[in-house]
């Protein structure tokens, strides 16, 4: 980038994560100034620097940007490329490999995480779009002493998983469901879990697990 002087940070009172974004933006500018490493980095457009001169040569391997992410209740500092998906950040930058990456196209659910208590496909979420939101992955569901989450425990008891590959996504989707609807019917659970494929087709086993976890024992079905 030819010069950095023309930057105006666009800020409005409507800003959703007001403080978080403003702070990170200022910090970022400070960092840029301190490091002097800004030249030609396309990544630095991240953060709504709307008045930047838009044209500049994008350089291969351009500078990554350090942001704060709230993952499993911890604020983690991490370098994130502008085009990076949350699944990539979680697995390959933060070492949280419990989140699986399968289709990478919003078509299977293996990568399901909660963002502000709502399920999302992390393969189809831009990491930079979830700054200052709360991300919870399968690793974040364990109890204070490392014990299984009640949904996980129920899945164990009901022998829900088969190969287990889709399981982290299924667990996260089930936990999110019970947060919203603590005692779903089997049919409601089936609908809520419809964004998570299982290649082993253990759907009924997962539904049994959810019925056990929420205490709806009457709707557990072990029939053939």
């Amino acid at each position: 980038m030819a010069d950095f002087k023309g930057i105006q940070v666009v800020e409005t009172s409507e800003l959703r994560e007001g403080e978080a974004r403003r702070v990170s933006r200022r910090e970022f500018i400070k960092r840029v100034i301190a490091s002097g490493a800004v030249a030609s980095s396309a990544s630095f457009m991240v953060g709504g620097l709307a008045a930047c001169t838009p044209r500049r040569a994008a350089v291969a391997g351009s500078v990554e940007r350090l942001i704060s992410l709230n993952v499993n209740g911890q604020v983690r500092r991490v370098d994130v490329l502008p085009q990076e998906t949350l699944a990539m950040t979680l697995r390959y930058k933060l070492g949280l490999t419990g989140t699986k990456l399968s289709c990478d196209r919003a078509e299977c659910g293996a990568c399901t995480v909660m963002i502000d208590d709502v399920t999302h496909y992390s393969c189809s979420t831009l990491t930079h779009a979830v700054r200052a939101r709360k991300v919870v992955t399968i690793e974040g569901l364990r109890g204070p002493n490392g014990e299984l989450h009640p949904v996980q425990q129920a899945f164990v008891e009901e022998l829900s998983p088969q190969c287990g590959f889709c399981t982290p996504g299924q667990v996260v989707a089930a936990v999110a469901l019970l947060k919203k609807n603590p005692k779903p019917t089997r049919e409601e659970a089936r609908h809520a879990m419809s964004g998570n494929l299982c290649r082993c087709a253990a759907y009924d086993n997962y539904l049994n697990g959810i019925m056990r976890a929420c205490g709806n024992l009457a709707e557990i079905s072990h029939g053939v």
Binding site: V10, E11, T12, E14, L15, R16, R21, A42, S43, M45, V46, G47, G48, L49, A50, P54, A58, A60, S62, L81, P82, Q83, E84, T85, M88, L101, D104, L126, H128, A129
Partner: peptide, 14 residues
């Protein structure tokens, strides 16, 4: 399953 090709990311707030 690699990264998307690079793009500049703008995140306007208004």
């Amino acid at each position: 399953k690699d990264m998307m090709p690079h793009f500049d990311l703008y995140q306007p707030d208004s």
